[in-house]
């Protein structure tokens, strides 16, 4: 397992509750390289579930995550982009990635990147939908939708209906994503 993971590159689209946790789990697994992308800065309201520190408020998430990942595992190569991803720039920014993690917050952005990766690239994407609220841990599951699409979540708990995001439940979904990514890297894409 270790050698395959060490040679792998993973693209992470969004560095919020999902992406910051996925990045750290993969760094601790000794992933070869991460391409991390987010256009936002750290806000105090993020600290209830995102892997930043109080003294990082106001700084770019990409810069803070590079710093945090370096403190955890300096052997991981990290390429950061503070940009807004769209269908056009996704293939360029994630060129060379073996797997992509969809870690956005809005439903439209999730739709955009999953569609862009499936139609414009040839690598798998691990997406998450339905992780708001608390409790009901076992409703969050990992499903293989098709050969290149893995979907994590309970499929229905959105922040639009369940007005709450918690470190624990978002974290469960993020760890499902990280675990599915490692599985794809080690075992390959099974058709």
């Amino acid at each position: 397992m270790t050698e395959k993971v060490k040679r792998a590159t993973v693209g992470i689209a969004g560095l919020g509750g999902l992406g910051s946790n996925v990045a750290i789990a993969l760094a601790r697994t000794d992933i070869g390289k991460l391409i991390i992308v987010d256009f936002d800065d750290v806000e105090q309201s993020n600290l209830n579930r995102q892997q930043y520190f109080f003294d990082q408020i106001g700084k770019a998430k990409v810069d803070c995550m590079i710093e945090n990942l370096r403190r955890i595992n300096p052997d991981v190569k990290v390429e950061g982009h503070k940009v807004r991803l769209d269908a056009e720039n996704v293939p360029e920014i994630f060129a060379g990635a073996d797997v992509i993690a969809e870690c956005f917050d809005t439903a439209e952005a999730k739709q955009m990147i999953v569609e862009a990766v499936l139609s414009r690239m040839d690598v798998p994407i691990v997406s998450a939908s339905g992780l708001a609220g608390y409790g009901n841990s076992n409703a969050i599951h990992t499903r293989r939708i098709s050969s290149r699409l893995v979907l994590v979540g309970d499929g229905e708990s959105g922040i639009d209906s369940v007005k709450l995001l918690t470190a624990a439940r978002v974290g469960i979904a993020a760890m499902h994503q990280a675990n599915a990514i490692i599985e794809l890297i080690v075992d390959g894409i099974k058709v």
Partner: peptide, 10 residues
């Protein structure tokens, strides 16, 4: 047909 409907949150 597979339809994946996304809900917000992350």
């Amino acid at each position: 047909i597979e339809l994946v409907r996304f809900v917000p949150g992350g």
